[in-house]
Design a binder for these strands. Structure first.
Ligand code: MN
Ligand code: MN
Ligand code: MN
Ligand code: MN
Lengths: 218, 218
DNA sequence: ATATTTTTTTAGACTAAACTAAAAATTACA
DNA sequence: TGTAATTTTTAGTTTAGTCTAAAAAAATAT
């Protein structure tokens, strides 16, 4: 059985590998808010367990085994987040810290039953795809709204990391994940987007457009 | 914030205080499957934090503060058990180990919302009362079936510790917690009880009667 | 190509929570 | 009441996971 700490490291490794092409000791330390020396210690242990490929001074990558564990933690995290929002009435922005604890509960049966109870959801409340029990995860064709030109369309799937307040704003504007969005016009002056969502015209600042994630069909 | 281990000790203390009038170091060690020396170490720490009254060689008791924490863990344990059975379809006998982990998740809001989601249940799936958020718990007027005489009545509230298989048996016989039970006849020869539950006559061995808990109205 | 800066690792320390073995206190009983 | 048995505590060890400070390696800049 893996410890909570090991699981958090593997998850961090996975997220960092997604975002950057090389994962350094310092980047892990930053991500987990720990000291690089602590990270080195843990990397040695994870390498010992064959969860990562690690050679000192050379950086790290998850092995197949390590990636599967990371994905199983992510699956649990996102299922619990879905539970908290859909069933317990939490807001989008409140669930992450709680799921950070719940993701470490050990019981295969629990997750199987939770998944069924939730109706086998494909996406979590932030629009992130939920890996299946075999660790398969949908690779999203994600774009930022700011990358679209006038008349292009997409489906709102989420917001960039660290912009929880944007979710709240969308909520207030009655914009939900899964809503279709179409660019009507882009103002040259300040990059403001005029878009249509649910037959309503809305105006989004450039900053919003830089943080709103869409799934597009190209 | 208290550690998982501290919480498990406080809960053990609470249960042992309920069952026996004095709580010894060895009884705690037995209960938690640990060595007495480990228990002594923890008792010192809990005394330091004013969760227990402890004087070496003199035994232990929970302070008001300690009892409140114990009850909050028990509340969480029983609410999670209720969730697992009522919502996720687990059986009575499967939920304890999982709740043993879930009870340590830290979030007031989570428990508040879970409680509402479950419809503010008063009893857990084993028939044990769920403490309220202020740590108030119903003192049950519990009896064993074997204590009843012919023609007396009660409501089935649970089974004694360590008799999970009895719950399964009751399940198979379509007997549920909350069902009313009336003693029809007690066979002198072997102490077998003939009882009526839901208009049906059932026969319970003496062993069953020694382990079946009822709420009575005396 | 060398020196400086940055990154990473090592060495050593600390805390929490467990353990074993031995000592001390308490309890039981002859 | 004194000895033996039992219970409890102490002393010292272990492991996991963190830290600080210093050393070593790698990357960058002159
Ligand atoms: Mn976590
Ligand atoms: Mn999420
Ligand atoms: Mn527990
Ligand atoms: Mn229970």
């Amino acid at each position: 059985m893996n410890s909570q700490s090991e699981e958090d490291y593997l998850k961090a490794l996975y997220h960092l590998e997604m975002e950057f092409d090389s994962v350094s000791t310092n980047s892990i330390a930053d991500y987990l808010d720990m000291k690089p020396s602590s990270v080195t210690d843990m990397l040695k242990k994870l390498a010992e367990k064959k969860f990562i490929n690690y050679q000192k001074y050379k950086g790290t990558s998850l092995t197949k085994k390590g990636k599967l564990i990371a994905l199983s933690i992510i699956r649990k995290h996102r299922l619990w987040e879905t539970f908290l929002v859909d069933k317990l009435g939490f807001g989008w922005d409140q669930v992450h810290i709680i799921a950070e604890q719940l993701e470490h509960i050990k019981s295969e049966e629990l997750i199987k039953n939770l998944d069924n109870f939730l109706g086998n959801p494909k996406y979590d409340p932030h629009g992130d795809p939920i890996p299946n029990k075999d660790g398969e995860i949908e690779k999203m064709n994600q774009k930022l709204l700011v990358e679209l030109k006038a008349s292009q369309k997409g489906i709102i799937t989420g917001v960039k990391k660290g912009t929880a307040s944007l979710l709240n704003y969308l909520d207030k504007e009655k914009v939900k994940l899964g809503d279709s969005i179409k660019v009507i016009e882009i103002l040259e002056f300040d990059g403001t987007y005029i878009v249509e969502i649910n037959k309503r015209k809305l105006t989004f600042s450039e900053k919003i457009c830089q943080n709103l994630l869409l799934e597009t069909n190209d």
